[in-house]
C-alpha cells in the first residue's frame, strides 16, 4: 500500500520532471522469474525502472542493492525494505560462510523480478564501468529466468552521484532482447556486455563534460 502510494508520486514526478523515451517497453518483464540488468548512474535508475511497471505488479519486483548503503541505519533499512522493496546484498564479502546472493535466489524461486546493477556502483555519471560477475552466478542458478538488459541515459545528468539537486532532462530507456542461460559464465558475461554495447550505440547522446 505504502509502496503503491509512493510510486504514484514517483510516476508523476518521472513523467513531468524527467520525461522518458522508452524503446521496446513491451519486452520489459513485469512478472518473474526474470532478471532486469541495467547500467547504473543515479538513484533515479531504480525509481524509473519501477515507475515503468504497473502498480499492481510492484510487489513482485525487487531491486537488489548494497546492504552497506541502503541498510546502514534503522530508518533507511525500514524504507528500503518496506517502500522500495529492496533485497540487500553484501558488497564486501567478510562472511564467506553464506552466499551473498541467497536473497536473490529465494526471490527468483518465488517467481519475482529482480532489478540488478552489475556495475556495482553508480560511479562517474554516464560512464559505464565493467560488469561484475555476480549476475552470471544468478543466471546459472536460475536458468529459466530470462536476463533482460536495459540501457539508460540521462538519469546521471538529472541526479548524479553526490548531488541532491534534481535537474530535469529527458531520459532514454532502451530495453534489449532477453538473454537465456547457455551454460557458460564467461560466454554469458560477453553476451551481456555486447548487448549493452549495442543498446548504448542506438543513439548519439549529447556529451556531458
Amino acid at each position: 500500500m505504502l509502496q503503491k502510494v509512493f510510486y504514484i508520486f514517483v510516476k508523476i514526478a518521472v513523467l513531468f520532471l524527467l520525461g522518458l523515451n522508452v524503446r521496446r517497453k513491451d519486452i520489459l518483464p513485469s512478472e518473474g522469474p526474470a532478471i532486469i540488468v541495467a547500467n547504473h548512474n543515479s538513484h533515479l535508475d531504480t525509481m524509473v525502472l519501477m515507475a515503468l511497471m504497473p502498480l499492481s505488479k510492484l510487489k513482485g519486483i525487487k531491486p537488489v542493492a548494497a546492504a552497506d548503503y541502503f541498510f546502514s541505519s534503522p530508518w533507511k533499512a525500514w524504507v528500503s525494505e518496506h517502500v522500495l522493496g529492496i533485497i540487500p546484498v553484501q558488497r564486501k564479502g567478510t562472511d564467506r560462510t553464506s552466499d551473498p546472493l541467497e536473497g536473490c535466489y529465494q526471490a527468483l524461486d518465488k517467481g519475482q523480478v529482480l532489478i540488478l546493477f552489475p556495475e556495482g556502483s553508480r560511479g562517474e555519471p554516464e560512464e559505464m564501468t565493467s560488469l561484475k560477475k555476480g549476475i552470471s552466478y544468478l543466471a546459472e542458478r536460475a536458468p529459466s529466468a530470462p536476463v533482460v538488459p536495459v540501457f539508460t541515459h540521462g538519469l546521471g545528468k538529472a541526479l548524479p552521484k553526490g548531488s541532491f539537486l534534481l535537474v530535469p532532462f529527458f531520459c532514454d530507456i532502451f530495453v534489449g532482447k532477453p538473454i537465456t542461460w547457455a551454460g557458460d559464465r564467461t560466454q554469458f558475461m560477453n553476451t551481456l556486455q555486447d548487448r549493452f554495447n549495442e543498446l548504448s550505440s542506438e543513439k548519439t547522446f549529447a556529451p556531458w563534460e
Partner: peptide
C-alpha cells in the same frame, strides 16, 4: 528540457540549468 537534453552541457553547470 528538450533543448538542454539535446545540446552538450557541462556537469559544472547543473545549477545554472
Amino acid at each position: 528540457k528538450e533543448y538542454f537534453s539535446m545540446i552538450p552541457t557541462r556537469r559544472a553547470d547543473r545549477r545554472v540549468l
